[in-house]
Write a protein that binds this DNA or RNA. Structure first.
Length: 212
DNA sequence: CACGGGATCGTCT
DNA sequence: GACGATCCCGTGT
């Protein structure tokens, strides 16, 4: 009997009960292996989530909503879980986060890398690449680009049955889960070492910059 | 392959 | 006016 389904098989979308649970660290871990999907202009792209980071308000200094700082930018983080939080980083990269937790708790999970499953041609085209290599989607900026995730989708709900951004349930990952410090948050003082980055050990689609 | 720097702009001070 | 939850390319070895 088959224990896994083909990549193209339809899957149930995760709903509010998943996203609105209170612990963003547990959610970051559980999102590993699930399928991030978008459909923009009729172009379906799906990838298996292989790397995430948790950001938690109010105590986490690396979180944009540290001390529950409420600004125009962080506003969406306070919404109930199940929306996209997408912001421009370094003036170039659109970083895709999933708002989690109940309303008022500004927790998010950054999706850092996916393993491409469907819509590979679309992903390659968006990235201006020819060959299928981890550079396609390993890293939060390039992953967003490949999936067509842009700051114009900031605040979009992922809960409606016809929402163009969603996460599908999936079979449990076979790879072991590893964790370690988050990337690029050296300013966050005592939070720097918190092991809130999660990845699937050995999966080649996990980001691997030089300095880590 | 290691290293260094530039790109580029929204956000908050 | 400073600074990012990054990435890519050029240089040198």
């Amino acid at each position: 009997m088959n224990k896994t389904s083909p990549p193209g098989a339809p899957r149930p979308r995760l709903g509010a009960d998943f996203y609105q649970r209170p612990d963003p660290v547990a959610l970051a871990r559980e999102l590993l292996g699930k399928r991030l999907a978008t459909c923009f202009d009729g172009r379906l792209t799906v990838g298996r989530i292989v790397e995430t980071e948790a950001y938690r308000a109010p105590d986490d200094k690396a979180c944009h909503a540290h001390l529950n700082r409420f600004t125009q930018r962080t506003r969406v983080m306070f919404e109930p879980g199940g929306r996209a939080y997408i912001y421009l980083c370094y003036g170039i990269h659109h970083l895709f986060n999933i708002v989690t937790g109940p309303e008022g708790m500004a927790h998010v999970v950054l999706v850092r890398a996916i393993e491409p499953l469907l819509g590979l041609e679309t992903m390659l085209e968006r990235r201006n690449m020819r060959a299928l290599t981890p550079q396609l989607t390993a890293g939060p900026g390039v992953m967003s680009q490949a999936m067509g995730l842009h700051k114009t989708s900031n605040g979009a709900s992922m809960l409606a049955p016809d929402a163009p951004i969603w996460v599908e349930d999936a079979d449990p990952a076979r790879e072991p889960v590893a964790c370690g410090p988050r990337i690029g948050i050296d300013y966050a003082e005592e939070c720097v070492q918190w092991p809130w980055r999660f990845w699937l050990e050995g999966n080649p689609w996990v980001s691997r910059p030089k300095k880590r």
